[in-house]
Design a protein around this nucleic acid. Structure first.
Length: 947
RNA sequence: GCCAAAGUGGCGGAAUUGGUAGACGCGCUGGACUCAAAAUCCAGUGAUAGCAAUAUCGUGAGGGUUCGAUUCCCUCCUUUGGUACCA
């Protein structure tokens, strides 16, 4: 009987589910291994063929580890809070919980069809109250802690309050945004509201005035990725920054540890450098400049304190709090005008236009080293949020400062002689100091040190490290997210709910439209907001990264009602040994998850300070998008489509690209992709608004009723995202129905290295299908007879088997699944060649292929009479002794070019090999008339003769 | 602009530390089986020249190191991802 994959798959899917074949116990008697996939957002579109790439890889790895004797945790869940469900609810009135559950159901079916060995009893969904109870709990813990810089970890805020009560805040070592000093006495006299405000400057979860993307036309706040080029992605309406009181997380307290601990991680270089860039550490100095007739000094940050003698002006960001206070009467008008101008500028305008703008405040700062008067300007090129929002400008050594000086005719004092370092830029920090007072003549590096020491001596500055990393905005004006376990009293002081009130569940609602003032839809539910007398609830909800920052811990003990996970479970599973997911989460999710993990580590709740030891980014499987060209100008008042082979590249601005459903395309994805007569009729049936259109091809211009049978409207193929809106989504279920899940799994792996992105292309899958049939035919013939014999295996057969075993072990270890599939193909080709049906060789092969092809291997394994699932067997190990070769075919090269071969015993030494090689005819032919200079022999590798 | 990764036949890709470039698969060509087709099996398949043995060229381009370079170094080009006035 030939292989019937549908039948086998149905049978084993059912069996595995009923017998809980993949259920995992927390069993400390076995070594643990934790393989994790980034959990998906269950979108309405379902899985496409790109998603499973990572899931299949991790599935193979997890199965392999289990067959090596490990207790493998390999769970799956859903990142099920999110915007699309809320938008769907606004459109349809269907509650997000309902549509989300439906989507989860479909995702699970699709994942199940792939034969993935998830332990579904551990499923986690972030929108499930029994889960988000603990997300809320972690938030409360963050709220209740501050970062102590002396012990370099988070400590309870009660410690801090105690210190305030006893000694005020002067001697406190904490990460804070609070820059005033108070005594114990003053603290005790503060009102609860003031105390709350002070503490907000220390808490790891705190409330501050933040800015949101406000879109007046849509009447709502937008996420960053809903804003494209300064306008809303939907509708293209203007978006402005609107201040709102919002929750934030003090991730900056962990900046140094987040950076330093990257060294311990087995992550890709590119990922680590992305995280490093994001954290953006730079060493430099904070320097205080006096301002004439102003009581407070101006604090700036610079990485180049050596250039302080070259400062010819200062620049503040337009939003800097000093601006209004230092501006002189004469310049007030101008400054106000500039501030207004800057506030109305979108991020896009600020970054795309390189023109230099600014205004003079009329105030002067004093250079602390030479007493020079330095004019203070404001300009939008100085960012409020980086450093102190103020810089000392050194136009001689900084490109932007130079442009600014040129524009406004400000002086330039050269301070660094770079003549000794041709081609060096100011970023290289090289050169010799000139015109620089006491550091003149020093090298830049010495100069930096000298100025730093002097700043500290004079007590007008100090060494300082700055980070690009900002505290994360943790509030979203949305319904479908975790509610904050927070309420406010009449003074707007934040109070946490009692632990017994958790989970604070989302109240049922039917109207999910945003509230006019930009508040979350929850604000509309007054009963819920004012449920507790004298208090109002927070109506914002948490962002997507809240639930995803700790989900991997919940899998360890998913049903626990007393704790986020039990100490024993966490102690056993510890951390994630292998994490597979897309690069799109390179900074967001991974940074916040590391931050939360470190916080939990500080609290002693997790054993390690990093959650994901090894991480692999799988590439994206892209789709081909097929477009037809529509002329922008109508023809006789009708739409006019033109075959792409008639369009010159210079005419591209005259056409609009209309995506076409790929099912209608002939020769999809190739240079010859086109719509034929049937395709164009399908297109019109689908997009009826074009039924009057003209279609112009090489053979003429037609209306839909006139298209001839040889009609060929060429389409334009582009590689891009696989997405519903390009109508190019390929559903794995369809591929599985046609070819089988094992085939789909092995084909996706066979496409290439797991980290690489590539467009989906079905051509080639036949090779894998053929391979699986050939594999099957080693065991079962066309009449369904079992073919295995008890005959003893030959040395050659055993050698092939053990070579394959070795290769598979190595390839899985290296996540090189494409070459593993090749190795299986080679094995089958060899067995076919030898006409081998010996149990001694083929039974191990069933187990070896089980992680890749779980269905077929299970079926074959049962037919051998085994009562145990093949997935609970141990993987065969290779016998090094069988791999020893006794002869080697040496390539014989002349001057590095291969000219011949010689087979020699593996035990021969270099001298003997050389002797044999030199006696070859081919060698004498090539060395004739020349002298042999040198013979290089690499034992077991090659022979090279230099003439 | 900066950071990171990559560039190999008609196509996907292989080559673990510098050691036979193109494994494996697709496609293509020819053959066997068949009334025919599908399926299957066998053989061939980097380019150029040649009946052939064989020779020359060949891993984005150019240079270098080496007995020997897809692999290491330098310069440049292209693609993809990230980031963007970060003081």
């Amino acid at each position: 009987m030939s292989l019937n994959t549908n039948h086998i798959e149905e049978k084993w899917k059912k069996y595995w589910m009923e017998n809980q074949t993949y259920k995992v116990q927390n069993d400390p008697s076995k070594p643990k291994f934790y393989v994790l996939d980034m959990f998906p957002y269950p979108s309405g579109a379902g899985l496409h063929v790109g998603h499973p790439l990572g899931y299949i890889a991790s599935d193979i790895y997890a199965r392999f580890k289990r067959m090596l004797g490990f207790n493998v945790l390999h769970p799956m869940g859903f990142d099920s809070f999110g915007l699309p469900a809320e938008q769907y609810a606004i459109q349809t009135g269907i509650h997000p919980a309902i549509s989300t559950n439906e989507n989860i159901g479909r995702y699970k079916d699709q994942l199940y069809n792939l034969g993935l060995n998830f332990d579904w009893s551990r499923q986690v969904s972030t929108s499930d109250p029994s889960y988000y109870k603990w997300t809320q709990w972690i938030f409360m813990e963050l709220f209740s802690h501050y970062y102590d810089t002396r012990s370099d970890k988070a400590l309870p805020i009660s410690n801090l309050i105690e210190q305030f009560e006893q000694n005020g805040n002067e001697a406190v070592h904490a990460v804070t945004t609070f820059d005033q000093v108070f005594t114990a006495q003053e603290w005790q006299n503060f009102s609860p509201k003031v105390k709350d405000e002070v503490l907000m400057n220390y808490r790891l979860a705190y409330r501050k005035l933040g800015y949101v993307n406000w879109c007046e036309e849509l009447g709502t706040v937008l996420a960053n990725d809903e804003v494209k080029d300064g306008v809303s992605e939907r509708g293209g309406y203007p978006v402005v920054k609107k201040p709102m009181r919002q929750w934030s997380l003090r991730i900056t307290a962990y900046a140094e540890r987040l950076l330093k601990d990257l060294d311990q991680l087995e992550w890709s270089e590119s990922l680590i450098s992305m995280q490093k860039n994001w954290i953006g550490r730079s060493e430099g100095a904070q320097v205080f400049f006096e301002i004439e007739s102003f009581s407070e000094p101006l604090e700036i940050f610079t990485t180049r304190p050596d250039t302080i003698f070259g400062v010819t002006f200062m620049v503040l960001s337009p939003e800097h709090e000093f601006v209004d206070r230092i501006t002189t009467v004469g310049h007030m008008q101008e400054i106000l005008r500039y501030k207004e101008y800057a506030a109305g500028r979108s991020d896009l305008e600020r970054t795309s236009e390189k023109k230099v703008t600014g205004a003079f405040t009329g105030a002067f700062a004093i250079n602390p080293f030479n007493g020079q008067r330095i004019p203070v300007w404001i300009s939008e090129y100085v960012l409020k949020d980086y450093g102190t929002g103020a810089i000392m400008a050194v136009p001689s050594d900084d490109e932007r400062d130079k442009l600014f000086a040129e524009t406004f005719n400000l002086p330039v004092i050269p301070v660094i002689d770079k003549s000794k370092y041709p081609g060096a830029t100011s970023k290289d920090k090289t050169g010799t100091m000139i015109n620089s007072g006491f550091i003149t003549g020093m090298e830049v590096k010495e100069g930096i040190e000298a100025v730093l020491s002097e700043l500290e001596n004079k007590k007008i500055g100090s060494r300082k490290v700055n980070y690009k990393l900002r505290d994360a905005n943790f509030s979203r004006q949305r319904y479908w997210g975790e509610p904050f376990p927070v309420m406010y009293d009449q003074d707007d002081v934040a109070h946490l709910l009692d632990m017994s009130a958790l989970p604070l569940e989302l109240p049922p609602m039917s109207d999910f439209k945003p509230v006019a003032n930009g508040k979350s839809p929850l604000a509309r539910n007054e009963d819920w907001v004012k449920a507790i007398a004298g208090y109002t609830r927070e109506t914002d909800t948490m962002p997507g990264f809240a639930g995803s920052s700790w989900y991997f811990l919940r899998y360890m003990d998913p049903l626990n009602e007393q704790e986020f996970a039990s100490a024993e479970a966490i102690k056993y599973w510890k951390d994630v040994d292998l994490y597979i997911g897309g690069t799109e989460h390179a900074v967001g999710h991974l940074m916040y998850a590391r931050f939360w993990h470190k916080f939990l580590f500080d609290k002693g709740l997790v054993p390690g300070n990093e959650p994901f030891l090894k991480l692999v980014n799988q590439g994206m499987i892209q789709g081909v998008i097929e477009f037809i060209y529509l002329m922008k100008e109508k023809k006789e008042g009708r739409n006019h489509f033109v075959s792409t082979d008639l369009i010159e590249s210079t005419d591209l601005d005259k056409i609009a690209k209309i995506p076409v459903h790929i099912d209608y395309i002939s020769n999809y994805g190739s240079h010859d992709s086109h719509l034929n007569a049937q395709g164009i009729r399908q297109f019109i049936a689908w997009r009826n608004e074009y039924k009057e259109a003209f279609f112009e091809t090489k053979s003429g211009v037609f209306t839909i009723d006139q298209v001839p049978e040889n009609f060929k409207l060429h389409t334009h193929s582009e590689v891009g995202k696989m997405s519903k809106r390009y109508f190019n989504v390929v559903n794995p279920d369809d591929v599985i129905n046609k070819y089988g899940a094992d085939c789909f799994r092995m084909y996706e792996m066979f496409l290439g290295p797991i980290e690489q992105s590539k467009p989906w292309d079905i051509k080639g899958i036949d090779g894998v299908k053929k391979f699986l049939r050939r594999f099957w035919s080693l065991f079962v013939d066309d009449e369904n007879n079992w073919l295995l014999t008890e005959e003893a295996a030959t040395v050659e057969e055993l050698k092939i088997l053990h070579q394959t075993i070795k290769k598979i072990h190595e390839d899985i270890y290296n996540l090189s699944f494409n070459t593993a599939v090749s190795a299986f193909m080679v094995f089958v080709n060899e067995m076919k060649r030898l006409d081998c049906h010996k149990a001694a060789v083929l039974l191990p092969a069933i187990k070896l292929i089980a992680p890749f092809a779980p269905f077929i291997s299970e079926e074959l394994w049962t037919r051998t009479g085994s009562k145990v699932s093949v997935h609970h067997e141990l993987i065969p190990m290779y016998n090094e002794g069988l791999l020893v070769v006794d002869s080697v075919i040496y390539p014989v090269c002349i001057n590095g070019k291969k000219r011949g071969e010689i087979e020699l015993g593996a035990e021969l030494n270099s001298k003997e090999i050389e002797g044999h090689a030199l006696s070859l005819d081919i060698v004498s032919k090539w060395t004739e008339g020349k002298s042999i200079k040198k013979v290089i022999v690499v034992p077991n590798k090659m022979i090279n003769i230099v003439v």
